[in-house]
């Protein structure tokens, strides 16, 4: 499914911050552009971010629309999407 019109933007909410992102962007790319460091915290509390970019490593997991452990690299942003990372407020 190709999303045409690269200029189209939509609204998402990342950790209570409302941002505009280009349609067709993955959640991982949107968070990377936002400067998010800790997509998730590891079992010992380390900050972790995307590594493989293709759904293999599970390091980019975030909570999307209340569903935890979603691989940010495999999901495209959608208008009104709420994303929660492990970034401390």
């Amino acid at each position: 499914m190709a999303i045409n019109g690269a200029a189209a933007e939509l609204n998402i909410v990342v950790d209570d911050q409302r941002i505009r992102v280009a349609a067709g962007t993955t959640v991982a790319a949107a968070l990377f552009n936002l400067g998010t460091e800790a997509f998730r915290r590891s079992v010992s509390g380390e900050a972790r971010g995307p590594v493989c970019g293709m759904g293999v490593c599970f390091e980019c997991r975030v909570t999307i629309d209340s569903r935890p452990h979603q691989r940010a690299c495999l999901i495209a942003v959608a208008d009104g999407m709420h994303i929660r990372t492990a970034t401390e407020a």
């Binding site: 962007t25 949107a30 990377f32 997509f39 995307p50 690299c73």
Partner: peptide, 21 residues
């Protein structure tokens, strides 16, 4: 290598092509 900012070579390509700057 677990620090955010360390990523795969293909991983970087994938991020770039999925809208990362």
């Amino acid at each position: 290598w677990t620090l955010p900012g360390v990523m795969g070579i293909g991983g970087a390509q994938a991020l770039l092509k999925s809208g990362a700057s």
